[in-house]
């Protein structure tokens, strides 16, 4: 079943008049983990906002689990599609962790006991159960983002979209978020759309999409995408550093297969020397 489906979708922000997204067709299968790559301004964040009705397409249709998004069913759609945004400081409404996680569950009118269960579940899923009564302002960036994910999980969504949610974090925070999201995908079967410009984060996805000027210009497994070096460079993306090294070694005459994994590359190098 298709979790999200775009059909001939176009969208432009009024002020600029330029198309942010142009005649886009794409879909995400239920349970899939898709990474969306692209430089700043390529339209990848617009994609996230269109997927749960925060923006309305100018043309075409966006459907979530075969339901076309209209102004009437936003409530139902947003229960299914949760979005976590970029800035860890701009997503929490309450001062205390559990109160913030409760916010979404309160909005959909759940009973008190059920909200309590949802908070338990959501905080455990992101590994923050020890911080239930902590003050949000005192958490690290990565912890704040995990609370933001928990706040979305409390609505039991079937799709989780991370709109550059790692961009403002340090490496430790980024790893925390990627780990949590990967686990949610593998263990709970939640469909994940990870929007990022860190190439390394895309490695864990089932499928990667590259956007440029509001259009999908490349699509495939992360390995296939990173093999097309020249194309990536034309879309203002850089290669993962490990691919650069493979390239250089090959140019120097070593027989090295392209790989994205440190251990595999070390093995390959070891096989070339005595």
């Amino acid at each position: 079943m298709k979790a999200i489906e775009f059909e001939n979708v176009s969208f432009c922000y009024e002020e600029s008049g330029a198309f942010s997204i142009r005649n886009l067709n794409f879909s995400v299968e239920q349970g899939e983990f898709v990474a969306v790559l692209g430089h700043n301004g390529s339209g990848k964040s617009t994609l996230a906002r269109l997927s749960n009705g925060l923006l309305e397409p100018d043309e075409g249709t966006v459907s979530v689990f075969s339901r076309r998004i209209t102004s009437k069913n936003l409530y139902e759609v947003r229960k299914d599609v949760g979005v976590v945004f970029q800035n860890p400081d701009n997503q929490t409404v309450a001062t205390i962790v559990e109160d913030d996680v409760a916010f979404g569950a309160e909005n959909i009118g759940l009973a008190r006991e059920e909200i309590g269960r949802r908070i338990d579940f959501a905080l455990r899923a992101v590994g923050m159960e020890a911080y239930r009564t902590a003050t949000v302002a005192r958490l690290s960036g990565g912890q704040k983002q995990r609370v933001a994910i928990a706040g979305v999980l409390a609505l039991s969504p079937r799709v989780l979209i991370l709109d550059e949610s790692t961009a403002m974090l340090d490496p430790r925070g980024r790893r925390e978020i990627v780990d949590v999201v990967t686990r949610l995908n593998k263990e709970k079967g939640i469909t994940v759309l990870l929007i990022t410009h860190f190439m390394e984060e895309a490695l864990l996805a089932d499928r990667a999409i590259v956007m440029n000027r509001g259009d999908i210009v490349m699509q495939g497994t992360p390995r296939e995408i990173f093999a097309r070096k020249e194309d990536l460079l034309t879309y203002n993306l850089s290669l993962p550093r490990i691919s650069v090294i493979c390239e250089k070694l090959r140019a120097g005459g070593m027989k090295i297969q392209d790989t994205l994994d440190v251990e595999t590359l070390a093995k390959e190098i070891a096989a070339c020397v005595s």
């Binding site: 550093r241 650069v244 090294i245 250089k248 070694l249 120097g252 005459g253 070593m254 440190v262 251990e263 590359l265 070390a266 093995k267 190098i269 070891a270 070339c272 020397v273």
Partner: peptide, 30 residues
């Protein structure tokens, strides 16, 4: 990380940890 993984396989690459120098030293070792 790569140097550590190579050392575990008995290959010592003495580089300054720039991408450039690492590749050069690996090629020299080879």
């Amino acid at each position: 990380k790569l140097c550590a993984a190579l050392r575990a396989r008995g290959i010592d690459v003495d580089c300054d940890f720039t991408t450039e120098d690492f590749a050069d030293k690996v090629l020299a070792y080879a």
